[in-house]
Nucleic acid binder design. Structure first.
Lengths: 228, 228
DNA sequence: GCAAAAGTGATAGTAATACTATTATTTTTG
DNA sequence: CAAAAATAATAGTATTACTATCACTTTTGC
């Protein structure tokens, strides 16, 4: 699968950046090191000035790529979901059996990223950690409706609707397909967070993965319908 | 049920405030109006200075009740979960049938608050909105492990463990009881958010409530186990 | 190879934030 | 009514989140 990605540019909404960070060495460095720094100090403490210091660049230069740190976060997380979408599509497109395809999709969407395939300058292991800890902050804002209209959450939306379709392929009569799809994706992030910080609130640990929990949850609720 | 609450003080961790806001008129006003203002402008734009202007009080006076706005948010959300815990306990404690009790609990935890019982100075409708939009921000921080140890998330923890127990009462062999309980509570907030802002990502709307979705989800996964 | 253009860096400046400290004034209460 | 407690007013600091300007460096197109 690795070769399928090499040379392939992950597409995110162009309004998220002032200048395409993929178009220059500095741009790539900004993206690469912002992930490292956000993981290290958290998004709340993260500033362009600190990032500038890390990459040996001026604050003002970073502003030429991203309007502000909120847009940068949207860029990073959009990149993440686009990457997940590719993984989902490529890992399920030759599976005929709907149930098996759904299981594969759930695995892709809820597994913890351990090894970095490291296709580019982006470290997917760190980016996954950033998404778990910071993604909600990108939409829990007063500007969310406007930004939704502007397509800033396009990739995330599309990904969830793909999963919804796969759920309906298993059981076309299930009435909560969108809610279940969003529960799996958002819940996947949340269970990883709980595992790391509120361990009594989840059963997921070394031996039991969120993927196992969600696979059981989804299949049982979809099959319950048909069994009566 | 209303009378059970009147005169009953909801208990939150004492380290969350410098001076108990319940102990004075100003303290109550701070709590009351902070909910209104956070709902209005969002937690990110909320400052003690703006709150001071709203209540006709000085910024420095607010600092005598809460160290900073993060602690205030923890206070407000703790109050909310404590209030939910009471609702849960009182509405289920005389139900013998485990399945029925669980259904009631899920209803209490995932329903939208519409009417304000308005026991005190706190508007529960607004507070519910604040929790939906801001609760994640209270734990998605770099200080979460320290604050967890200090008991800042005690009430929330206890509430989820109560739900876990009720899940196990229905099916003692279910292996993901804590994960399912946290999925219901956190997912409940999330589905309300989606309904308001990303409507294509949920099936919940005027006619279909998150409570119905979660009831079906939980009962089907718990029963699937026993049916095979 | 050179000039224009584009990109980057350095510096300065502003309004707002998130506080702390001090002192003055008002309110409570013993 | 005096002492104590609570609140208000003012001032001050470091940091944030930018914007603007200008200098310098690198790229590119002829």
């Amino acid at each position: 699968m690795k070769q399928l990605f090499s040379g392939l540019k992950i597409g995110v909404n162009e309004d998220l950046y002032v200048k395409d960070p993929e178009s220059s060495a500095l741009g790539k460095k900004i993206v690469e090191k912002s992930i490292v720094l956000i993981d290290e100090i958290g998004f709340d403490s993260f500033t362009f000035k600190k990032l500038g210091a890390v990459i040996g660049s001026n604050e003002s230069s970073i502003y030429r790529y991203f309007e502000n740190k909120h847009k940068l976060l949207l860029y990073l997380t959009s990149w993440y979901w686009a990457w997940k979408e590719y993984q989902l599509v490529f890992s399920t497109n030759n599976i005929e059996n709907a149930e098996q395809a759904l299981e594969t999709a759930i695995n892709v969407l809820t597994r913890r990223i351990k090894k970095d395939s490291h296709t580019s300058h982006i470290d997917e292991v760190l980016l996954n950690k950033v998404v778990v800890n910071e993604y909600s902050k990108s939409y829990l804002t007063k500007e969310v409706d406007k930004e939704y209209k502007d397509g800033y959450f396009e990739v995330y939306n599309r990904l969830i609707l793909r999963l919804k379709k796969m759920i309906l392929a298993v059981n076309g009569k299930y009435p909560f397909a969108a809610a279940l799809a969003s529960t799996v994706v958002e819940g996947g992030l949340h269970q990883h967070f709980l595992r790391d910080h509120f361990p009594t609130l989840t059963d997921c640990n070394e031996k039991l993965s969120p993927a196992e929990y969600f696979n059981y949850l989804v299949l049982s609720t979809l099959k319950y319908n048909t069994n009566g």
